[in-house]
Nucleic acid binder design. Sequence first.
DNA 1: TTTATTTTTGACAAATTTTGACAAGCCAAA
DNA 2: TTTGGCTTGTCAAAATTTGTCAAAAATAAA
Lengths: 95, 95
Amino acid sequence: MKHFGQKVRELRETQKLLLRQVAAHLEVDTALISKIERGERNASKTQAVEIAKFLKSNEEELLTLWLADKIESAIVEEPSVAYQAMKIVNKNLKK
Amino acid sequence: MKHFGQKVRELRETQKLLLRQVAAHLEVDTALISKIERGERNASKTQAVEIAKFLKSNEEELLTLWLADKIESAIVEEPSVAYQAMKIVNKNLKK
DNA sequence: TTTATTTTTGACAAATTTTGACAAGCCAAA
DNA sequence: TTTGGCTTGTCAAAATTTGTCAAAAATAAA
């Protein structure tokens, strides 16, 4: 399963767009988009939404990948119990 | 399913300990423990481990609750796709 | 009730983390 | 080589987190 940045890069390249063009749309530095695509930085939610729009992608799909990345970041600190913890969260989600 | 803080409070009260005593062990202010038990603040991983030891609880169980809280915090920003995102994380976990 | 003890609350400064820009670097194509 | 696109490292500013303090509130003891 792809990460947010990977998906963004894929979309961007398919559409033959430059980092510069995406950056311009978000009004940020090109370097930042580069980092986001390579997973070195996480996009803010706003940025994720803007990117989705600009790349004419399914917004929900991209936000899902974006959130998955965030969850994975949280898990890094204690991967050994990640599975069990996810189960708990799932249970809590349903309420 | 309980949250980390709830479980801590339960353990502490069962053992008839005061916030002050737990706080002393972690060398932090009583107010902080109060906040942690009520879920107003998240404990650091170190604190979680120290609390588990002091309350003679199963360390893994407490860490699991602790991580679940962290994941839930991450999810708050975009709950609508949480379930799908969790699925992705689960898949990635298995690799 | 008073009094004493414990817990909670809100505000705050300090510490830490995150953020994005900038500038210099790399690499491939011309 | 030069050019254009992307990457990298570093930095200050901004934002968030952290824990303390003092005071209020709740609880328990007298």
